[in-house]
Design a protein around this nucleic acid. Sequence first.
DNA 1: CGGACATTGCAACTTTGAGTTGCAATCACT
DNA 2: AGTGATTGCAACTCAAAGTTGCAATGTCCG
Lengths: 217, 217
Amino acid sequence: MPAPKKKSSPHATEPKPRGEAFVQTVLQVTLQQLADVGFEKLSIPDVAARAGVNRTSIYRRWRTKEVLVRHALDAAMDHSEGLATTGDLRTDLIALAQTVAHFLQSPTGTAVVRILLAEGSNPELRLLANKAYGNASDRAPFALLAQAKARGEIAPDVDASTLLFTIAGALMHRVFVEQGRATVTYIAQVVDLVLKGATRYAKEELLETHYRSAHAS
Amino acid sequence: MPAPKKKSSPHATEPKPRGEAFVQTVLQVTLQQLADVGFEKLSIPDVAARAGVNRTSIYRRWRTKEVLVRHALDAAMDHSEGLATTGDLRTDLIALAQTVAHFLQSPTGTAVVRILLAEGSNPELRLLANKAYGNASDRAPFALLAQAKARGEIAPDVDASTLLFTIAGALMHRVFVEQGRATVTYIAQVVDLVLKGATRYAKEELLETHYRSAHAS
DNA sequence: CGGACATTGCAACTTTGAGTTGCAATCACT
DNA sequence: AGTGATTGCAACTCAAAGTTGCAATGTCCG
């Protein structure tokens, strides 16, 4: 008997009655609320009201606020998209930064960052938020930089995490502190800054350096 | 409301009774509490208990939590230190970043950032937090960069705020997301990254660019 | 010194909002 | 149709914020 599920009977022994829609609605609203008012101000009665359901029903499924939020975040971060790489470092970094920016500006991302910053305690929640945060950009970025470094495209003494976190920090500052949009233009500016440096046009100095090293050997 | 201080006697018309010490204690504790539990979880009864005073007394002076926090922040950001500049851009930027990092890691700074990120609404509070944030580094940094740009030390198309906010964002990420210390080493790394760029050693490409621009037209 | 004024503390009260429980209504699936 | 599970509803408990009247204490000034 084809049992992809848990029960042997072919008919749905795991009935997804109105319950499934219920769960989805509540988790959705929880995320929204999380982004809007933050973790601390989020309350189950509020979520219930906004979701158009009764508090009691929520309390019965998720005993506490923490559990509810955990499940909401869990459900929200299932879709980890692979990061397509073109081989051009600048292009790839911009694409990556766009992914991160998109995440930061989404309800989920906002919620996650708020938890990360405000919930210094609550190790369980922090862990989950960290997971969600890391999930948005996985390990791929590090591979990206390792390759670039192997190609000699970036300096060997540049720390990959410093570079990535600087970009991420710039985006966070843009979105949350300045409360501005992280446009493609802005993202490109940041990436270019970090890649080429602010002093990129001091050609004389660079040439000098080159000649010196060329003549030295 | 302002106390009726207009007395006929020329002596201390602004009496500082036990009230002054009271105010200072409460504001101090408020700041501490703000950094410890954040704005949302902060409650006047808690502050009262921690300050060893009665809630009622606090309620009478500051009607709401918002007012109390506003005054606490106001009192905390009086000392704006001038930024000494040496003329060397890298040195000055590192010094500046250290000031910012120091602020971010202080109770006041933590509180301010938490408010900035969590209190997207509350325009009044946000405004004050912004003021406190900006206060940590005033306009001096912009002058710094303007001078460097005038000297041709940095590229003319580099946006000053992008550069500064990228550094600030990197520090915020370090302190709040990674929850690590912003050491001098790390700060120098970030500043160097932003100034020189990750691709600083790709001499061939830079030379190529130079030759092209030299031979072209 | 002493009396008026202001400030703080104290205790009891009201209010608000989270969380709980028993029961009726509803839906799903046999 | 009937049975079991799920949701809604209404009334409750409980904790903590905020309020008020009054007593106690300190300060100022004649």
